[in-house]
Amino acid sequence: MPHVAEWKKDEVANLKDLINSYEVVGMANLADIPAPQLQQMRRTLKDSATLKMSRKTLMSLALNDSEKAQIENLEDYMEGQPALIFTNMNPFKLYKILESSKTPAPAKAGSIAPEDIIVPKGDTAFKPGPVLGELQKAGIPAKIEKGKIVITNDKVIVEAGEVIPRDVASILTRLEIFPLEVGIDLRAAYEAETIYTSDLLTVDEEKTLADVQKAFTQALNLSVEAVIFNKESTPLIIQKAVSQSLNLALNAEILNEKTRDVLLAKAYAQMLALASEVSAKDENAVDDELKE
């Protein structure tokens, strides 16, 4: 590497070392993270991952110079203020940790709304004044009520994927609505010749939970339906057998120790039902006992 300052050579060598000694290398974007939060996140990651900020050119050099196949493609994911993350954790887990450490941040003019930004109906802290006009101008339904500015309806002020306009950003901040998230934004991660982009890395735990329950239900259904006996299915198969047998006995009016009370009760209930219809027509058609 001619024409390169000594410190830069050291830095590239250092990065290469890290690249070669960890199984997973992530490319993150640290843009917009305030310094204290970044400190906090470094502490969170301390034992599980190493975060390294550097110049884009140096990171490119290190990636291209590594003997790990395909890893140079990570440079395609340099965005904003890129940084490399080194870890031996499963990249999905790394992504999950990083996502969960993100914190809410104020709206910024020109950024993209990650989801619908809603201004909820209700009181505001604002006293009547010019702010009412600003709210209305930003498209927020507001009026004065009992000496306060009140938002009259829930309002989607910016839809997901739309750019946040300047006046809206400032109003949202004044309303203390923080629709953005800041944190280490993992754009892609490399492991064993594969690059996982952030869309792949998104793990849907709710779906996984639902799938686990679905699998269990399917297994129960199949074992009951096919009459395969195991610890879980056998009580259900017994219940199915008993329930079918009781149904048959009750429907065919077969008296035995399990059905007789129910059948007697059925007769009695039917009698009372019919009696109430009859006595509605003519009280004298039923005996005194039934009139009460």
Partner: peptide, 27 residues
């Protein structure tokens, strides 16, 4: 004999699956 007599006119398949609502439910 009573069992057989009771089942004579009964569609067993149907009776098995039909919950004896009237019987069980009032209570």
């Amino acid at each position: 004999k009573a069992l057989i007599a009771a089942l004579e006119d009964v569609d067993i398949e149907e009776a098995m699956e039909k919950t004896a609502v009237a019987a069980a439910a009032p209570v």
